[in-house]
Write a protein that binds this DNA or RNA. Structure first.
Lengths: 144, 144
DNA sequence: TACAATTCAATTGTGCACAACTTGCCTAGT
DNA sequence: ACTAGGCAAGTTGTGCACAATTGAATTGTA
């Protein structure tokens, strides 16, 4: 007879807990910017390069239009982005930063430091954790 | 002038992605049992020891009554658990397994193997990842 | 050139997370 | 015994995730 799997042995639960704990650390910091964590992710992508289509954003973040459409609508309501139907291809929506959205980036620079500080791991360990997680995510996507 | 942080450097995003990828691998397997991942977590805890109060469940999983109350109501509607108001302390609700809930455990035994198989990491690497994540979660909770 | 298949974004519906609040119950201090 | 404080579970409201569907625009192809 096989034993029921134990909660405290599960990598998946460890991931789930760590992910929620990490966004919980980010939450009060992001609150100062008026952003949720997924909204912050979208802004990060746009600060690197814009405009971007909804689909491209989704590919970079692993989110679909069902998540992004309302999220972008909220960012637009906050005045951080603008959505314009593309001229060449009327199906596409280009997401642009507004000046307010662009200037928010400077206030966001200090954010990643907070996690590093709270993590209780060395920079090396964090770096190794990150690459292990990326390999894992890759493999899981292939399996899925 | 400081650079905006890059998405691909963020441990937090790596956690967020890996966690979603892992539950995505679990999803079709759990669907055979009719459970979502958080529901499965609650069942895991109960299979180890029951009955449990809502608060105890919440402490083990890091969830509050706002999440658990409706989740437990759904598990009860499926006939997997029963909620009984405690006699000694009328504030408490004891969550019991039904026979159906208990017998589901045997069907769930094979589940953790799926992740290990899809992970693309060795057993050692998975084990090390798990302990690193647990340390991280601990530290983040202290910071929060 | 028609028109079937595909693509993109949005919408609908379900189920978490989590903050803030409510309600009923218990307990400690007077 | 009375009551202030605290506690447990539930409720409300917002915002993700994600599956499934819709509708409009484009592309490929006979």
């Amino acid at each position: 007879m096989t034993e029921a799997p134990r909660l405290d042995r599960q990598v998946c639960f460890a991931l789930y807990s760590a992910s929620r704990a990490a966004t919980a650390v980010y939450r009060p910091v992001l609150e100062d910017l008026g952003l949720t964590y997924p909204q912050y992710l979208v802004m990060l992508v746009l600060w690197e390069s814009e405009p971007k289509g909804v689909k491209e954003l989704g590919e970079e973040l692993g989110l679909d239009s069902g998540t992004l459409s309302p999220l972008l609508k909220r960012l637009e309501a906050m005045g951080l982005v603008e959505r314009r139907r593309s001229g060449e291809d009327e199906r596409r929506v280009a997401v642009h930063l507004t000046p307010a959205g662009r200037s928010l980036s400077s206030k966001a620079n200090a954010i990643p430091g907070h996690l590093a500080e709270a993590a209780g791991l060395s920079a090396d360990e964090l770096e190794q954790l990150r690459t292990t997680l990326e390999r894992l995510t890759e493999a899981l996507h292939r399996a899925h």
